[in-house]
Design a binder for these strands. Sequence first.
DNA 1: AATTGTTTTAAACATCTGTTTAATACTAGC
DNA 2: GCTAGTATTAAACAGATGTTTAAAACAATT
Lengths: 217, 217
Amino acid sequence: MTQPTAIEPAFDRLLQVAVEVFAECGFREATVREICSRANVNVASVNYYFRSKEALYAQALAFAFREANRLYPQDAAFDKSLPPEQRLALFIKNFLYKLLDDSQLGLHSKLIAHEIADPTKALDEIIETAIVPQFALLEEIIRQLLGSSPDNVTVQRCLLSIFGQCLMFKHSRSIIDRLYPELIADESAIQASAEHIAQFSLAALTQFALQKVRPTP
Amino acid sequence: MTQPTAIEPAFDRLLQVAVEVFAECGFREATVREICSRANVNVASVNYYFRSKEALYAQALAFAFREANRLYPQDAAFDKSLPPEQRLALFIKNFLYKLLDDSQLGLHSKLIAHEIADPTKALDEIIETAIVPQFALLEEIIRQLLGSSPDNVTVQRCLLSIFGQCLMFKHSRSIIDRLYPELIADESAIQASAEHIAQFSLAALTQFALQKVRPTP
DNA sequence: AATTGTTTTAAACATCTGTTTAATACTAGC
DNA sequence: GCTAGTATTAAACAGATGTTTAAAACAATT
């Protein structure tokens, strides 16, 4: 029971609870009163410590992202000395774990999911700080696997194919929960799902690489 | 300017506008007043013709689904006399077109997208009537391509891989609009994206089929 | 033309929203 | 112990929301 007691200052409690509530409800559905109630704090505190609900949201987003990147860094996939096949598998696994972590951390991806589905002003900054770097890393790995300088749109589409497979588990979670719950039942199931995506994508990419060299004989 | 004039009865105008507004805003964010305003109708009309906002939403959902299935039927992909490769390509193309159609129709997929991201009571019925049949059809095609009775989880994961690639264009539309707008710029770009997904998936599936026959030598 | 049933209307209702205010409680620093 | 700055509180504000009401307008039947 990590209940936010008075031992932590109200500011911190507020920020932490805000991450939770915004992750659950999204910006618009979340209410200041709910946040304050859970943090055992007066309604006026949000406007006292943060300027407004919107400002609190921005700070909560930034906080959640810092935490997520601290716990799920992509540095293994960044290692250029590894073979690209392994880097791809590492990238996908880490990304999926980050997405599906339902502990304190899963909140981060829930925040993004809400933000993507129903963008607020904060989306542009999120894209810059969180999404573009991930895209760039995966793009580099894909180029290594495709070889022989493929055209940009092909790389982009392959990138979306891979991200799409991963994000399916996040954005369509409500469907998977009802139709295929066993695919995300426990950690080993999640790992198996990650390995599937890696195999599936690798198979497609190597096939693409072959076709590139020997274009439709 | 297909502005809803008084020529159509208020009930129909209301239903039509409701689809639009719910598609734009989702159930919770949409307001009865906005719907009535756009339909040139008094606020009380929603509760007069439909019992409540929620009942209006349910009817709007059902209406949009009927329209979508009327304009984008999956009957070509259903044709069992076609080779599975072609059925897969047809399925993906039709599905993606349905998703990305921004005319009167795209509204249908926006409604689902909102519903999946932020489920209401209506989700269960949507899953039954709209999603399960699509899943079943694609599952049948996948089984045909994998051959030799693959285990269920493999089929399920492949299915999610394919749907995930398609849904990426819907659920992460806000990101694609900003980073890769050329991939959905016009009809030919969308068709090319559909063909990419089909090729990508087919490559992976045939590879999987080979591995199944000759398991990791 | 009067009566009936159906639509439409403006107004009000009750509740919830983010935000503000002004008073109170608390906590150093002298 | 008093004071200055900070933190917290209850109450109120102004606006929006879904819903209801009761009166008015309309249409069709007799």
